[in-house]
Amino acid sequence: MRKTLLITASTLSILGIIFTILPLGTIAIIPNLLAIIMAFIVLKKSDAKQKTAPKIILLVSTLAFLTVIGKDIFVKDVVVVDKQFNLQKEESKQEAQKDLEGL
């Protein structure tokens, strides 16, 4: 039981880290939170010598969880100024003007 929970917690923790890195927003909360809960249960079920692995998972998942929350609160969704796209828009307008003159 402990081993199964530990493997599941590890998998969820890795998934949580990947989701945290990817721009998936608050969806990354789910694997991280589940990893925290499972790691906590494993920690409670472990002997003194077996506590290292769940402690690492707990720490990593908690950090990832806080990162997701922090990103959601402090990082705003922005669109960067794309010079190439702006140039493309201007060119498109000029070409359209030529086409319209021909109509």
Binding site: P23, D77, V78, V79, D82, K89, A96, L100, E101, L103
Partner: peptide, 23 residues
């Protein structure tokens, strides 16, 4: 509004740009 030598047009445009985090 767009003006040519003999007509007036209205330019309707739609731009879709991903947020920088997705770029």
């Amino acid at each position: 509004p767009v003006k040519t030598s003999n007509k007036f047009y209205l330019r309707l445009s739609a731009e879709i740009t991903t947020y920088s985090k997705w770029d």
